[in-house]
């Protein structure tokens, strides 16, 4: 029953390792986009313009409650319909960046909301302007709360990159599929992909937990 072939494993491992690089790159790029866009989404819900706040809120809700894989298809195929060709990488990064930006905006929002009202008032009493109030008082305190969520989504985006294979981004899953159909063997490539994911995501999650504790200590906050 166990027909595991080590020579085959050694044969395909270099290709998979190379594809892992692409997977990590996609995750980091997408996450970078998401971090910036997410902050824009979060702050755009706290403007003095209720209509804008509401519109951004609805967009975030929409992106959050629909499947990423469908959004990837949407971005990739709708462009050409209107004469805009997007490469798989570009389309993939837009889709996954937007999707995770909506998640991260919620994380930021919760972080900002967790800062006690007295902190806003103390900043006001000291005449700090809004930019300084956010950058020096509120956001530094929101980070420890937000960090856990941000870490979860970093691991999350990494695990969602296989969906990019559906439009032909040559990451791990795409490579495993290619190997599988070339050799008519799926056991080793799919199992190895699973192992590679475990090998990266479990230590990353552990390291993030450690860093979170460190940040809290550094900022002089009590640990949770």
């Amino acid at each position: 029953m166990f027909d595991w072939r080590w020579e085959f494993v050694l044969d395909i491992l270099p290709r998979l390792v190379k594809a892992t690089g692409n997977t990590v790159l996609a995750a980091l790029l997408g996450y970078g986009i998401a971090m910036v866009l997410g902050l824009v989404f979060a702050l755009a819900q706290r403007t003095p313009f209720p209509l804008l706040n509401r519109a951004v809120r609805e967009c975030v809700e929409f992106i959050r409650s629909t499947p990423l894989v469908l959004q990837i298809f949407f971005v990739f195929y709708v462009g050409p319909q209107f004469g805009v060709m997007l490469s798989p990488w570009t389309a993939g990064m837009i889709a996954i960046g937007l999707h995770y930006a909506s998640y991260l905006s919620e994380v930021y929002r919760a972080g900002i909301d967790s800062v006690p009202r007295g902190q806003w008032e103390a900043a006001t009493a000291l005449s700090l302007n809004p930019v300084r109030t956010y950058s020096r008082i509120i956001i530094p305190q929101a980070i420890p709360t937000a960090f856990a969520g941000m870490g979860n989504y970093l691991v999350g985006i990494f695990k969602d990159t296989p969906m990019l294979s559906v439009i032909g981004v040559a990451e791990l899953m795409h490579t495993a599929n290619a190997i599988g159909s070339e050799h008519y063997r799926f056991l080793e490539p799919y199992t190895l992909v699973g192992l590679i994911f475990l090998l990266i995501s479990l230590p990353t999650a552990a390291a993030l937990r450690k860093t979170e504790a460190k940040i809290r200590r550094k900022l002089g906050l009590r640990s949770l």
């Binding site: 006690p116 008032e121 103390a122 009493a125 305190q141 900022l219 002089g220 906050l221």
Partner: peptide
Amino acid sequence: IGMCFQHFNLFPHM
């Protein structure tokens, strides 16, 4: 004007 609060409201990260 300066104001001192019942619960101090010091910035905890500083």
